[in-house]
Design a protein around this nucleic acid. Sequence first.
DNA 1: AATTGCGCCAACCGCGCACTA
DNA 2: TTAGTGCGCGGTTGGCGCAAT
Length: 336
Amino acid sequence: MGRAPCCDKASVKRGPWSPEEDAKLKDYMEIHGTGGNWITLPRKAGLKRCGKSCRLRWLNYLRPDIKHGEFSDDEDRIICTLFANIGSRWSIIAAQLPGRTDNDIKNYWNTKLKKKLTMHISANNGQRMSSSSEQHLLFNHSSPAIPPARSVLRSPNSDHFYKLTPFSSTSSSTSVTNPPFTGHEAASCTTSDVSSSMDLDRIHPHQQQMPINDLQGFSPPYNRESEIFSGDQKIANYRVGIPMDRYGIEEISQLISGSSPYSNVATLDNNNSSYNSMIRELISSSSYHSNAATSGNNDCSYNSFLFGGVENSSIMTSHSPNLDTGADEGFLYYNY
DNA sequence: AATTGCGCCAACCGCGCACTA
DNA sequence: TTAGTGCGCGGTTGGCGCAAT
């Protein structure tokens, strides 16, 4: 037996919303909210629409905090960085861009951003890159294709992890066989600075994995945070980790919000054992591994990369959580 | 002026998950 | 435990507007 439809498709209006319908929905939402039920909302609001359609219209267009217009370079960078790590989890990416909706970002990526990256790589193809700062970077997860978002967020035993690989069109060193291309790879980019970008389809077959020591231009991952450059501009720290498993961005950010002088970093607090327990639980049971053994590196003026997970000995191996329980040594990075 | 092709984006669709009875 | 229900997500579609021919 098939799933029951959410509404009678024959009796609901479909297609573009009229200004009158928008006004009705907006008026109703401002007074009553959803009432916890989108399905019954259209009838109460006097709309001949499916509840799902109302929800979509409200969330993607009528909501008062929606931001319309061009995406900024910063937003481009955030989208690219997050896409590189988590793939097409548009809702998670949207959560990092206030005022933008998942649909917005998805459309933007599919119609513009991806194209710009491809065009630029095509233009640069074959040119020898003269310095490490000109190397293209690829995020390249070696796990099977990322499962659907909810599975990833909830799977307690996920061992997915990413590799970060510098790309050079002239590189010939190889240490690790390239895993199958799954299409989720991406790289750092902005629309204005196109020196750092990637071609999702074309350059991957030639990509080389390199030993850590060969990561020219990056400071050692076991010493302090390494850095990712877009041209001369550092765009992110170099942190490689597995995708989130048990916890989502919202939970993490809520928990650590205000816990540290740095808005994007949670530190352990000697005076708050219950807080520490929660942080440890988060770190040890998710991919937000401790960056233990880098104590003393409290200079978090950097933009911390979204997913922690660089172990102090190697970035190329999946690993067990390794949380040093000493105060100040559990870092939980959650924001770019 | 008419036609065609293309880009953009709002809206739809189906599925998986969470929740509840 | 299971079935029903609603929500939210990502993928896809369809229509509009504009540019090219």
